[in-house]
Simulated scan of single mutants.
Amino acid sequence: MSAEKESYNTNFENTELRPLSRKDYKDIEELISKTWKYDSLSSNPKDAKHLSRLYLRSCLKRSTFSCVAVSEGKAVGIILVSSEKSAPRFTITRSLSQIYAAMLLLSTKTGRTIGKVFGGFEKVDSELLENSKQSFDGEICLFAVSEECRGAGVGKRLYSAAVDYLKSEDARSYYLFTDTTCTYQFYEKRGMKRIGEKKVGLRPYSNHDLNMFIYSYKLE
């Protein structure tokens, strides 16, 4: 899933882009939690922390490229990409960290309920990809930008870095999953095409339904 919103903001124009490092994890986990409002899913604040940790680790496990936006020493944006041409960097520590995050989330009753909901989201993603009947060379696994710096071009720069990486990998196409909690118009403005969608109920967390999408792009 991904999130980026466009407005006008000049306070972060000199934001530095660099590869992700472990010292950024805490900032990125907080960014993930705020972006997708994990705090609203449970009365236990630890659930949001564990869920964001688990989500980051699951994205890292399959990614082959990372880029973070840093402003005044704080990570305010991230994009993770997977290329079929390159194998993800496997480490025992990363795998154990993902397992540990899952155990922490599932250690509470509310956490187990949330885990089932997000497990359902993963099934929908798999279904959307299968139903597209297309194969891809790359995936944008995670894309999020802090609300405070949206509109300063940070998201555009991160997205461009991801596309440049995929081009360097000789990728011909890539895809991503997103939904109505994100500003999916960002991708449409950059030529990505919606190739599938499905409506998912969010009860008891919300009275509204969620539309989940898969977008794709063919590189020249």
Rank of each mutant, 00 (worst) to 15 (best):
A3G: 11
E4Y: 11
K5R: 05
E6Q: 09
S7V: 14
S7I: 12
N9S: 08
N9Q: 11
T15V: 09
T15F: 05
E16L: 12
P19Y: 02
L20E: 04
L20T: 02
R22C: 13
K23C: 13
K23A: 13
D24K: 02
E30V: 11
L31G: 02
I32K: 03
K34C: 11
K37P: 07
D39H: 14
S40N: 12
S42W: 07
S43Q: 12
P45S: 08
H50D: 14
H50S: 11
L51W: 02
S52L: 04
Y55E: 02
L56A: 02
R62D: 05
R62T: 07
A69S: 04
A69H: 01
V76G: 01
I79C: 00
I79R: 00
V81S: 01
S83W: 09
E84L: 13
K85M: 14
P88F: 01
P88G: 04
R89F: 07
I99K: 11
I99S: 10
A101E: 07
A102L: 15
M103L: 15
S107F: 10
T108D: 01
I114D: 06
G115Q: 07
F121M: 08
K123A: 09
K123E: 13
D125N: 15
E127R: 15
E130R: 15
S132E: 04
S132M: 09
S132Y: 06
Q134C: 14
S135I: 15
F136Q: 05
E139H: 04
C141G: 00
F143C: 02
A144L: 03
A144N: 01
V145H: 03
S146D: 10
R150K: 01
R150T: 07
R150L: 02
A152G: 12
G153H: 02
V154N: 04
G155Q: 01
G155H: 01
K156H: 11
A161E: 09
A162D: 04
A162C: 03
V163R: 08
D164G: 06
L166H: 03
K167Y: 13
S168C: 05
E169V: 06
E169F: 08
D170R: 13
D170L: 14
D170F: 15
T181V: 07
T181R: 08
Y184Q: 06
Y184W: 10
Q185G: 04
F186H: 02
Y187G: 01
Y187H: 05
G191V: 07
M192E: 10
K193N: 13
R194N: 15
R194D: 13
I195M: 08
I195H: 07
G196Q: 08
K198T: 08
K198L: 08
K199W: 11
G201V: 15
G201S: 15
R203I: 14
R203M: 14
N207M: 10
N207A: 03
D209N: 13
N211A: 03
F213Q: 03
F213E: 00
I214S: 04
S216P: 00
Y217R: 05
Y217V: 06
K218C: 06
L219V: 06
E220N: 10
